[in-house]
Design a protein around this nucleic acid. Structure first.
Lengths: 337, 337
DNA sequence: CTGAAAGCGCTTACAG
DNA sequence: CTGAAAGCGCTTACAG
């Protein structure tokens, strides 16, 4: 136990064991040490309550064993889940993670990128804004970066993303098969994700001879609620909505309630992501489930591969989503318009 | 720009500026330096793309500017929100935070406590398991700790917690006023939180001449669902449930669905916490809202106060919750029972 | 197998 | 105001 207040250093241990600090260091790193000395050192470690100083270790060994994780907001359940997966993988690999929330603000992203440099991180897992995505290739950072969730097809960085166009197309496909025709779309306007999902929506609508009708909104439930309320007041009101994130999902549900429309008869809805509560709302909400666990783990895996082979061409891992069908997209009544 | 691959050190800057490293250091820390030299150093910093090495700085200055945060699971929305508040407060104060998930596992808690020592953190914000709570006073850690969410009344550490008994009593009070009498309770069995909420429930029931009927469950939706299904099959089935966390809330809703009971006529429910989706489920769920922002900020504040006055007696900050009334506890039909 | 010594990149008395 | 030097707590060649 440290009684003195100050925590014991390797020197204290060496003194207590009657050996050199080099020997203590070797015992701690499982180096070649005689059994006799090893035992004495181990006893001394216990006696002094010694804990290695990671700052010193990092400085000397020149690697931080730290990975950076910059997301827009940890309160977004998608990022909550991904970051949990990243952290688990990191701690399993003996690494630490530094988490930062950019709030979709490019200036904060820049600030945190600087912080990452000062921490001498081993690598970065990053969900950038569109603005940052444009500048990212120009920056010269001292660590590899793996993009998650957002990504430019032309970028030079490794990335693991959902197959967003395909996922959105899945929703169109499903709604179409259920008898819906006037299918409107709400997409987030701050990330590439919203764009890509819109592209998939657009293509899948067109290929079926349906007319796409999309709006891009700031990622808030209120924005979606207002848009839906207004939209449903017009002629040719949509029969169904496809929305690109769970905040919009909430917005649609709120709008339905305000307009006294039942789901799905008055208004059908499908979207992202499969959060626990989507099962409980109304008749259950049809959603795309992302492989969040896989995304986090794969990002870590890509990072490790990159560290092993710094010069290999970049890779993009595109993961498929699953369509979880629930009552919010039940087959459309025959009598409908 | 660092072209060499290796990031520039303070020595490189000194060389480029034609000054000593001491002068560079002084410029960086806004120490007393002549304008002429300051300018030369600033230019050299830019030219070399210099970024201070935080490991070196921490080692030398002997403080890590780091606070630890150990919670059970960041995916629990309560902890998501609190940790976001903690991180914001920390970064604002120029500190970093290391986040760890214990998964309610005392062994992992111990592991992370050790990690915190190795990081030489400035202080810890900690939501411990009950098992850890018992041993915590015996440990001699080299940093102050502020407990959040969970806490033993006899403990020697600072803490910020919800007034759990009062919050649970609020729910009983409300249900009673709405005409409910047979009010059952489901409480988590891993934390002190569940215990305290049970106490409040018990007391509030007794004082109103009602019979408490409580069960303690592992914190999973499934456990709650099963318990409710079974309970509702018995004679004297409860009219309402009070539950101590949002997973149980989900469980009750699922059970209601399975039993084809409407909320609140067939089964009323109220609980913790006020997550965004609770408004959208069924007729809306009546819940206690915790001041999550305040909890995170206050924990940081208590930590800073403790650092300034290490010997001051410990403090507990007990914050009140708000009862958010929704349809799940609408007034009970007169004909009932 | 073991120890003395150098050095990672900083900050901070100590002189001048 | 400025610089030379010591030292934070480690690891790792280098000798022996």
């Amino acid at each position: 136990m440290s009684v003195s207040g100050k925590i014991a250093s390797i020197k204290d241990v060496a003194l207590a064991a009657g050996v050199s600090v080099a020997t203590v260091s070797r015992v701690l790193s499982n180096g070649p040490v005689s059994d006799a000395l090893r035992k004495r050192v181990e006893d001394a470690v216990r006696a002094t309550g010694y804990r290695p100083n990671l700052s010193a270790r990092r400085l000397r060994s020149q690697h931080s064993q730290t990975i950076g994780l910059v997301v827009s907001d940890i309160r977004n359940p998608f990022f909550t889940a991904v970051s949990r997966a990243v952290e688990d993988a990191a701690y399993r690999a003996g690494m630490r993670v530094i988490l930062c929330n950019s709030d979709e603000n490019p200036e904060r992203e820049e600030l945190y990128l600087r912080l990452m440099q000062e921490e001498r991180i081993t690598g970065l897992i990053f969900a950038p804004t569109r603005a940052m995505l444009d500048r990212l290739d120009g920056l010269d950072l001292d660590f590899p970066v793996v993009l998650i969730d957002r990504n430019a097809p032309t970028g030079r960085h490794d990335a693991v993303v959902l197959d967003n166009p395909r996922a959105a197309a899945l929703l169109v496909e499903h709604l179409h098969a259920q008898g819906y025709r006037r299918i409107a779309g709400l997409f987030g306007n701050t990330s590439t994700t919203g764009q890509e999902r819109h592209e998939g929506y657009q293509a899948a609508m067109t290929v079926r001879g349906l007319t796409p009708a999309a709006r891009f909104l700031a990622p808030h439930a209120d924005a979606a609620e207002a848009a839906v309320v207004e939209w449903m007041g017009q002629r040719d009101r949509p029969e169904a909505f496809i929305v690109s994130n769970s905040l919009f999902l909430m917005g649609v549900v709120k709008a339905a309630r305000r307009l006294k429309l039942t789901i799905p008869d008055g208004i059908a809805v499908a979207g992202f992501d499969n959060e626990p509560w989507t099962e409980l709302v109304g008749p259950g909400l049809t959603v795309i489930e992302q492989p969040v666990q896989d995304i986090g783990q794969s990002a870590m895996a890509l990072l490790f591969e990159r560290l092993e082979a710094p010069d290999r061409p970049s890779r993009r891992l595109v993961l498929g989503g699953t369509c979880v069908v629930r009552g919010s997209t039940a087959a459309r009544m025959a009598d409908a318009d």
